[in-house]
Amino acid sequence: MLDVRSLSLSRGHRIILNHLDFQCAPGLIGLIGPNGAGKSSLIEALAGDRAESCQVYWNQRPITEWPALDFAQVRACLSQRPEASFDFPVSDWLKFSRTPHADLTTESDQWAEHPALAGAIAALGIQSLLERTLHSLSGGERQRVQLARTLAQVWPLDDTPRLLLLDEPLTGLDLSHQHRLLRTLQTLGQRGVCTVVALHDLDLAARYCQQLLLLNQQTLVANGTPHQVLTSQHLADHFQLDAEVRHDLTPWPIILTR
């Protein structure tokens, strides 16, 4: 599905990522690493925003060769600091997500019954926010609306494989909404959505992700299941964290910091 072949990124003379190779199947894939490891740059490259994105393949085809509108129907991306320049009603914001599919206009009255929007609204629990405008929302509420908008763009309505890229989506969400979002992403994975999500919370990454990509110092230092990636050695080497990782207490690894 998602295939990254020898991807290198640089900004000016500074190398950000160096020869990354990995593949991802549908499901929830966590992108972890210390600050400045290149997670956001990798998300940008996977979204097709960089010239080097030609090294990224989606369904055996370089993403730079996909027609923009066709790719927009199967790929959605939420950046770390999403913009909302004008005070749009939440309903309009959600409707914009279906632009690539051309199956909804801003004038539609029955928009909330559209299966993609209905699914995303229910998943993020934003029914009570639909009559509000963006600038009247709290930070966490606005993040949930942005997430719903992103999810609605690639909400699975058929068997087409889809790619969802989320850069630190848990920012501003309370604990219950963090778990709710990650459970939704797991469910979407079972329906053919490949979600790559940059996370800082290693406990949540361990619990919900089926595959983890650990970035540090411009390279992919580990790629595998949470049990393979989250080891005491990796945590010490790449996060300078003195921790014991227990693999026997729960189905997912538990990190016990000392």
């Binding site: 925003d49 066709d70 927009a72 959605a76 991306c77 999403p82 320049s85 749009f88 309009d92 763009q153």
Partner: peptide, 15 residues
């Protein structure tokens, strides 16, 4: 309208 989401988001919607 889409540009008010930022250039990247507008591009991600295929515009």
């Amino acid at each position: 309208d889409l540009l008010s989401m930022g250039e990247a988001s507008c591009r991600h919607l295929g515009w």
